[in-house]
Design a protein around this nucleic acid. Structure first.
Lengths: 138, 138
DNA sequence: CGGTATCCTTGAAGATACTG
DNA sequence: CAGTATCTTCAAGGATACCG
């Protein structure tokens, strides 16, 4: 994963461990920037939750994507998955310390967005207005 | 953009302005988490750069993706685009104050990744090792 | 309950060629 | 030089069905 880019970076004379970091940074940013991760982590920030509960709390997510995303988060060690051998079965997901520390780091970025979203949305509107003036003049 | 999710969120009783923030946060995270943005911003952090210079400094990027990504960043007000009417033409891209402040915010996250990438990579390796044990036992 | 398997659609992005 | 246009490929993600 990202091996291709890593190779290209090192080939251009960038130190291998620095290339590693670039790749991992992009990896992590892509994960927290994907369609569902933030919403799942937000739902888990209050405490452990079950699969079905999460499915209900994250609006619009499919079972497939919930399963995939949870698995990826467990793989990275950001979540734990605890399966209890009962009937009916019960599985609980919970943020790990690593997951919580990432959530705090992301919170900084959320803070930035909260402070600057008006500016961004305004810039987009202005840009789009200009463009439509150019493409559809008069 | 993200209007669909916004509607779903508000329908579930989440306050509209809160839903807005969720959507914008995901937007911004998706932007900084995409394949090229980080590398372009890094290249611009030293000062203004021209299209061709950027094309050379970002390994593996196509003209198409460089153009698209730059345009998106300009649209959000994170970059300025200055075109000089010379021959040959010269265009310089530069981080705005907003862009620089985002870069600083992202740096926090980069710091987190730098500190924790060993843990993440280790977790992944451990997880994958377990999985292959399960799927290909003995 | 808590998933996985399968199929299918769509948008993202690469390759290549062309232009003001 | 600084892009855009076109074509194509590919994988993320949705819908649906099924299973331990």
């Amino acid at each position: 994963m990202g091996t291709q880019l890593r190779a290209e970076l090192t080939e251009r004379g960038i130190a291998p461990d620095c290339a590693d970091t670039i790749v991992v940074v992009r990896d992590v940013l892509a994960r927290v920037g994907d369609k569902w991760t933030m919403l799942i982590v937000a739902a888990l920030s209050e405490g452990p939750r079950r699969f079905t509960t999460l499915h209900a709390s994250v609006p619009g997510i499919s079972q497939r994507m919930l399963g995939h995303t949870l698995r990826a988060l467990v793989r990275d060690g950001l979540l734990t998955r605890a399966a209890y051998a009962e009937v009916p079965p019960r599985v609980e997901y919970e943020l790990t310390d690593l997951g919580r520390s990432l959530a705090r780091a992301v919170d900084q970025l959320v803070g930035w967005v909260t402070q600057n979203q008006d500016a961004i949305v305004g810039n987009r509107a202005g840009f789009d207005a200009e463009q439509s003036t150019v493409t559809r003049p008069r």
